[in-house]
Design a protein around this nucleic acid. Structure first.
Lengths: 288, 288
DNA sequence: AGTAGAATGGAATATCTCTTCCAGGATTCA
DNA sequence: TGAATCCTGGAAGAGATATTCCATTCTACT
C-alpha cells in the first residue's frame, strides 16, 4: 500500500549526525524527541525536560547542538514533520508526485472510505437504522444533483427491503407533494455536499417544521443541512478530478442498509425471496 | 465525559451541537478549526484569528461557546484528537473503528476499493478514457438494476463533461431505440455484476454485433459481458449486507472521469463554467 | 428613521514560556 | 591527587501568548 510514505524527517537526520557529540543528559532528551515527537510538537521545554529527567537548559542546549536557533525552532521542525503525516490524501494528490494517478486515486478513495466510516458515531448510526427499519415511518430521500446517483442506490436497495421509500426529485411539484403528505413520524434522509442545492436546504427546513425526523448526510457539521437535522453524518468526499467523490457516501449507505437488513431480517427476507422468485420465473437474471 | 472514547472527535462533536448558535465570525473560526486542525494544534490564537479573518477575542469566545475553559483547553482537545492520527497511515487504516460492525465494513470496503483499483490495467484504462473523451463517439451506459445508481452517477458526471451521454433503462423500447441509432463508432459502457440482468447481456451482444466499442465493468473476466467486450474491468464488490457493494465500481468511475476531464480539459472547462454560470444566475446553489 | 441589543476587533493586562547566565558538581588528564 | 575542563540544573529576565474589557459597528425590530 503506497500509504506508507514515512519520510525520515529533518530532526531525526540531525540527531543522527550529531548523536556522537551529545552529552548524557542531552542524549536522554534526544531519545525522548525520537520516541515521543508529540511531546515536542505539543509540549513545552519544561514538559520535555521532565520527560527526559533533565533541566530546561539542557533541552535548549540540545536544540542548539542540532543547529536550531532554539527550542522554538526545533519544535517547528517537529511540527512540520508531523503535519506531513497528518495531511489528508486529499492534499497529497495535488502535489506533482512521481507516483502514478491510479495509486494517488487509490490513496484518496481509501482515505474517503476510512475517514467517513471512522468518524461515524455508533449511536447516530443505530438511531438512523432504527428509524429506517421502523415499518410505519415512511422514508423520503432528498439529494442534491451531484449525489443523485448515490441516492438512487440507497433508494434501490432500501426499496428491496421495505415499502414506502421515495426519492424526491428537485422540482417544486415533487417537493410540494412530499411535504403535503408528510407525517411527523416520517423519516427524511437528506444527502448534499458543499455548494448545496438550495431546494434541498429549503426542503429540509420544511420537513423539520413538519416534525419529520431528519438525517443529514453532508460534508460538514456546519452545513446548512446539519442545522435542521436530528442526526448528521459527515462524509469525506475529496475527489481527484473535477467532482467530489461519493465513494465514502456509498460506503456509508452500504453500512446503513446492512443494518436495516439485519434489523428487518424476517420481513426483508420475505421481500427479497419474493423478488427472487419473480426474477427466476421471468428469467430476467442469469448466471452467465 | 467519561471513559468511553468518542469516535467523532470531541471538538467536532461540540461544534456540531453548538453550530446553530454560532455568530458569523465564530462560524468562520469553527470552519477553520474543522478544516485545518493543525493550525489549532500548532498555532496560536492570533494565527487562528488571522486564518479566519477575525479578531483574537472571537477565537476565545468560540472556545467558550464550545464549553472549553479557553483557547488553551480547546487546543489541548484538538491536540489529543490529532495525536491519534499520528500513527503511520497504514496502521491507522486497519485500526478498529467504533464498533465491530463498522470495522468489518471498513475492511470490506477498503478491500473493494483497493482490489478494484490495483487490478486495473493502465492500458485498458487509457483506452477507455480515450474512447469516452473522443467527442464524435456517443457514449451509452448500460447497467443492471443493482448498479443503476452508480451508473446514474457516471451519467451525471460524464454529461457535465461532454455531450451525447445516455443511460439506457432496462426496457425493451429504450434498448431497441438505442440499438437502432447505434453507429459503429459509438462507445458502450456496460455495468453489471453476477446475477446478470439478461437484457444487459443481450444488449451488449447486439451492440457488439453492430460494431460498437464496448467496455465491460463486471465482477469477473468470465462474465458474459466480458465475452463481447473490447476491454473488461473487474471490480471487487463484496458486501457486508444482503447486497453487493458498488464502492469499488464508483471509485473506478471517479478515476475514469478524472481521466476524461483532464483529456478534455479545455472543452470540459467551458462546459463546467457555463453550468456554473447558470447555477450562479439562478441562485440554485448555495454555500450555506 | 431610531433605538436596543448583539457582535466584533483592538488594546491592556496577567500568565505562561523560552532563553540566558551562573554556580556547584562531575570528569578527565597530568 | 590536584587542577582544568566540561556538564548540569536552577533562577532571573526577556519575550510571547491568552484573556479580559471596552468602544465601535452592525443588525433587527419598532
Amino acid at each position: 500500500m503506497s500509504l506508507t510514505t514515512l519520510r525520515r524527517v529533518e530532526v531525526e537526520e540531525r540527531i543522527g549526525k550529531e548523536g556522537a557529540t551529545l552529552t548524557p543528559a542531552e542524549r536522554r532528551v534526544a531519545e525522548v524527541v525520537l520516541a515521543q515527537p508529540q511531546l515536542v510538537a505539543f509540549g513545552t521545554v519544561a514538559d520535555l525536560a521532565e520527560a527526559a529527567g533533565s533541566g530546561a537548559a539542557t533541552v535548549v542546549r540540545l536544540a542548539s547542538k542540532l543547529h536550531y536557533d532554539g527550542f522554538t525552532e526545533l519544535q517547528s521542525a517537529v511540527q512540520r514533520g508531523l503535519a506531513r503525516q497528518l495531511r489528508p490524501a486529499a492534499e497529497r494528490i495535488r502535489e506533482p508526485a512521481a507516483s502514478d494517478s491510479i495509486s494517488r486515486h487509490l490513496d484518496l478513495e481509501i482515505d474517503n472510505v476510512a475517514s467517513t466510516l471512522r468518524s461515524l458515531d455508533v449511536e447516530a448510526l443505530d438511531d438512523l437504522v432504527s428509524h429506517i427499519a421502523h415499518p410505519s415511518h415512511r422514508v423520503h430521500l432528498l439529494s442534491g444533483d451531484a449525489s443523485l446517483g448515490v441516492a438512487q442506490q440507497w433508494l434501490g436497495e432500501l426499496s428491496a427491503l421495505r415499502e414506502h421509500v421515495g426519492l424526491i426529485e428537485g422540482n417544486d411539484v415533487a417537493v410540494q407533494r412530499m411535504l403535503a403528505h408528510m407525517e411527523p413520524v416520517d423519516t427524511v434522509i437528506a444527502i448534499d455536499l458543499r455548494r448545496y442545492d438550495r431546494w434541498v436546504v429549503d426542503a429540509v427546513k420544511s420537513c423539520s417544521a413538519r416534525g419529520a425526523w431528519i438525517a443529514a448526510v453532508t460534508d460538514s457539521l456546519l452545513s446548512p443541512l446539519a442545522a435542521h437535522a436530528d442526526r448528521t453524518f459527515t462524509v469525506a468526499a475529496a475527489g481527484g478530478g473535477p467532482f467530489d467523490s461519493h465513494v465514502g457516501t456509498l460506503a456509508l449507505a452500504n453500512l446503513v442498509i446492512a443494518g436495516v437488513a439485519s434489523r428487518l431480517r424476517t420481513e426483508a427476507t420475505h421481500r427479497l425471496d419474493r423478488a427472487e422468485e419473480a426474477w427466476r420465473e421471468s428469467g430476467s437474471l442469469t448466471d452467465r
